[in-house]
């Protein structure tokens, strides 16, 4: 049983991954709900963790693995309004997931049932990684950089040093480069400050496919900031933190993307 105060939050999370992965299992235990799935080309991977405190009420008395088709769950979530409360429940035997939406004023109740699937998922083990560079920037800025550079080239090189982070690309029509200085990320005198907060152990430069990076920016509505984790010889981790309605941290959505390599 999981009761979420704003159904729209779950919809945003599913919408941010449904174009990348077709199917996934929701692994539920008493602490929360975890998902891990790779895209069909095995180049990128998405994980999310929805902690117990994301929900108004949460109980799960035994570990469950719920096989979900992403297009189907997205269709059901679209039937609710974003400020409806949403109660998720499973039956016994566990072959359906039920969605009960209740409008804010309590005048409308709707219920949908999603047929669950038996999925044999390939699962990767992601070790705890000491990244060389951790870059925090505004989601809107990261999204704009990716979309702008994608009009020029197919891949983007991210280079992080102590002083700045640069994003550059090359295509048939020419080149593009965007550089963000190390500085405070956020608002200042009601003006957005477009800079990046950089924590660095060692400078890193890696290239990534813009097509995938653009998929990731669909999570931009979850949070103001995005955190890029980079290290030599490891996939990029793009992290969006998830907050509950009390603005407490209540989980994350993380994308992993294998770099382009010189052969």
């Amino acid at each position: 049983n999981a009761l979420i105060k704003q159904a729209g939050l779950l919809k945003k999370i599913i919408d941010a991954i449904k174009d990348l992965i077709d199917e996934a299992t929701l692994d539920c235990d008493n602490d929360g709900i975890y998902l891990q799935a790779m895209d069909s080309s095995h180049v990128s991977l998405v994980t999310f963790y929805l902690k117990k405190n994301l929900f108004e009420k949460y109980s799960c008395n035994r570990n469950l693995s719920l096989g979900i088709n992403m297009t189907s769950i997205a269709k059901i979530l679209k039937c609710g309004m974003s400020d409806d409360t949403l109660l998720l429940e499973t039956n016994n035997p566990i072959d359906i997931l039920s969605f009960k939406f209740e409008s804010r004023r309590g005048h409308k109740l709707s219920q949908f049932q999603l047929r669950l699937m038996n999925l044999e998922m390939e699962r990767l083990s992601i070790p705890d990684t000491e990244y060389s560079c951790i870059i925090e920037m505004m989601c809107s800025e990261f999204s704009k950089v990716c979309h702008d550079l994608a009009t020029i080239g197919d891949s983007m090189t991210i280079t992080c040093t102590k002083k700045n982070v640069t994003f550059d690309t090359t295509g048939d029509l020419g080149t593009g480069i965007v550089s963000l200085k190390q500085g405070v990320v956020g608002s200042e005198n009601d003006e957005n400050v477009y800079a990046a907060s950089i924590k660095i152990v060692k400078p890193v430069s890696l290239s990534f496919s813009l097509r995938y990076l653009i998929y990731f920016t669909k999570a931009s509505s979850l949070s103001n900031k995005v955190i890029l984790h980079m290290g030599e010889e490891v996939p990029l981790m793009v992290e969006y933190k998830i907050f509950n309605t009390y603005e407490e941290e209540a989980g994350y959505l993380r994308y992993f993307l294998a770099p382009k390599v010189n052969e």
Binding site: M38, S41, H42, V43, S44, L45, E122, R123, L124, S125, I126, P127, S155, S207, S209, E233, V234, P235, F256, A258, P259, K260, V261, N262, E263
Partner: peptide, 14 residues
Amino acid sequence: KVTQAELSQFYPED
């Protein structure tokens, strides 16, 4: 030549 790596080159299967 630049090629796209796969995730399994970096992370083992669970």
